[in-house]
Deep mutational scan, measured.
Amino acid sequence: KRPMNAFMVWSKIERRKIMEQSPDMHNAEISKRLGKRWKMLKDSEKIPFIREAERLRLKHMADYPDYK
């Protein structure tokens, strides 16, 4: 399994928030909203998620050195 990228790290957190607020919303609609919101974020707002994704990538490389 591949490590999460910055969007996936961010969307995992945000998806929970949306599901708590709107439990009946369909997954496809949540995904569309998340995509739009991610694109609207400033680069500076994405930095913590980019850093976390990089940390996960490095950990994945250490844990699975033969992964292609």
Rank of each mutant, 00 (worst) to 15 (best):
R33P: 02
M40Y: 06
K59N: 13
K36F: 10
S11L: 01
R15C: 06
M61G: 13
L58Y: 09
M19L: 13
I13E: 11
R16P: 11
R51G: 04
Y67H: 13
Q21H: 09
H26S: 15
K59G: 14
K17L: 06
K36L: 13
F49M: 07
I30P: 02
P23H: 01
W10R: 00
H26Q: 13
I18H: 00
I47Q: 13
R15E: 14
N27E: 15
R51A: 11
R51P: 05
L58D: 14
A6I: 00
K36Q: 15
M19S: 08
H26F: 05
R57G: 10
D66C: 08
Y67I: 12
H60T: 14
K32R: 11
S22H: 13
R57Q: 11
I30E: 04
D43G: 06
K42F: 03
M40R: 06
D66L: 09
E29C: 02
H26C: 15
E14N: 07
K17A: 05
L58P: 05
I13N: 06
P23V: 04
G35A: 14
K36Y: 13
E54K: 01
S22I: 04
R15D: 00
G35E: 15
I18V: 07
M25C: 07
A62M: 09
L56I: 09
P23T: 04
D43L: 11
W10A: 04
A28G: 09
L41S: 04
R15F: 04
I50A: 07
E52A: 05
E54V: 03
E45I: 07
K17N: 06
M40S: 13
M4Q: 08
G35K: 15
L58H: 13
K39N: 12
K1Y: 13
L56G: 06
R33Y: 14
I47A: 13
E52F: 04
E20V: 06
K12S: 13
N5V: 05
W10G: 01
R57L: 07
L34R: 02
W38Q: 11
N5H: 03
P23Q: 02
R55V: 07
E45A: 06
K42T: 14
R33G: 04
Q21A: 10
E54I: 02
E54F: 02
R55M: 05
I13M: 10
L56A: 06
R15A: 09
L56C: 04
E29H: 03
N5F: 02
M19W: 02
M25F: 04
P23C: 02
R16A: 15
M4L: 09
E14S: 05
D43F: 12
D43Q: 10
R33C: 14
R37V: 08
Y67A: 14
L58T: 12
M4K: 04
E54R: 02
K17Y: 04
D66G: 12
K36W: 04
K32F: 07
K32P: 03
A28Q: 08
W10Y: 06
W10C: 00
W38M: 02
G35F: 11
L41A: 03
S22C: 11
M61N: 14
K1E: 15
R37Y: 04
S11P: 04
I30G: 03
I13C: 06
E52W: 04
M25D: 02
K68I: 13
S44L: 04
V9L: 14
E52G: 02
E20S: 07
R55C: 06
K59T: 13
E52P: 00
A62R: 09
P23S: 05
W10P: 04
K12Q: 12
E20P: 01
I30Q: 01
L58W: 09
R33F: 12
L56Q: 08
K36A: 13
L34H: 01
K68R: 05
K32W: 10
E45P: 00
K59Y: 09
A6R: 02
M61K: 09
R2K: 12
N27K: 09
N5T: 14
G35C: 14
E20M: 02
Y67S: 14
R37P: 00
V9A: 03
K1V: 11
R57Y: 08
D66Q: 10
H60W: 04
K59H: 14
G35M: 14
D43T: 09
A28E: 11
K17T: 05
I30R: 01
R16K: 07
H60A: 15
A53L: 02
W38E: 00
P48R: 04
R57C: 09
S44R: 08
S11A: 14
S22R: 05
F7C: 04
R51T: 07
A28F: 05
Y67T: 12
S31C: 09
D43A: 08
E20K: 04
E29V: 03
W38H: 01
N27V: 09
H26K: 15
W38K: 06
L58I: 11
W38A: 04
A62W: 06
K32H: 12
L58N: 13
S31R: 07
R16H: 12
K36C: 10
E52D: 05
E54Q: 07
D66H: 10
E45L: 09
E20Y: 01
R51C: 07
S31E: 15
M25L: 11
K39C: 05
S22Q: 11
P3R: 06
S11V: 04
K39H: 05
E45H: 05
S31L: 09
E52R: 02
R51Y: 08
H26N: 15
K32I: 10
D24I: 04
K59L: 14
A53F: 03
E45T: 00
A28M: 05
L41H: 00
E52T: 06
I18F: 03
L34G: 04
S31Q: 09
N5G: 06
P48N: 04
N27M: 07
A62N: 14
I13Y: 11
S11Q: 14
